[in-house]
Amino acid sequence: MIGIVDYGRGNLRSVEKALEKVGFEATIMASPAELSTVNGLILPGVGAFADAMQALEQGGWIEPLTQFARSGRPFLGICLGMQILFEIGEEHGEHTGLGLLTGRVVKFPPGRKVPHMGWNSLRLEQPSHLLEGIPNESYFYFVHSYYAEPGEKKDIVATSDYGVVFPAVVGKDNVWGAQFHPEKSSPWGLQILTNFGKWVNEDETLSSHRS
């Protein structure tokens, strides 16, 4: 079972429907208490960095999310949900993020239309579970004004080019992030959700063997 974190931000329904479409069960979680019932987690989000962190804090999510990430179970942040995986966000002043990945989230420099809105292509920087079967230069749907600058180059899995080359997919161990919206990026976005779902199921099998 995949849990979708509901902290009052983001189009949760479309993430849930997209997972259903590719054959995985998902549940929208209104409270951190439900984290123990899921084997994989999706952290969605639209809006501003500080607002999202504040909403997570008010919902009592911060510590439970950190623990979930440490438990080794698959964790995927989408769009703003990816950005807040990092240590610092520079949207409307400096704000602290979840710090599950090192680095900061910065604004696109002037000289282009912001938000970066529409379909952009992915350049695969290293092989990964999450992007299995995704061809180089396939297109995904982005809407964002800020982008991540990871502290560790090896956490960058794929990049896109909007005048600056920025990370489109990041990942370290079990914690992953997509700057685009896989749930709105038919057909390759659905492939990514399929890969994530399979990974959650495999992990589930492994943990039941362990116990």
Partner: peptide, 8 residues
């Protein structure tokens, strides 16, 4: 539509 369409 949201159940069947996976573009914005």
């Amino acid at each position: 539509t949201a159940e069947q369409v996976f573009i914005p």
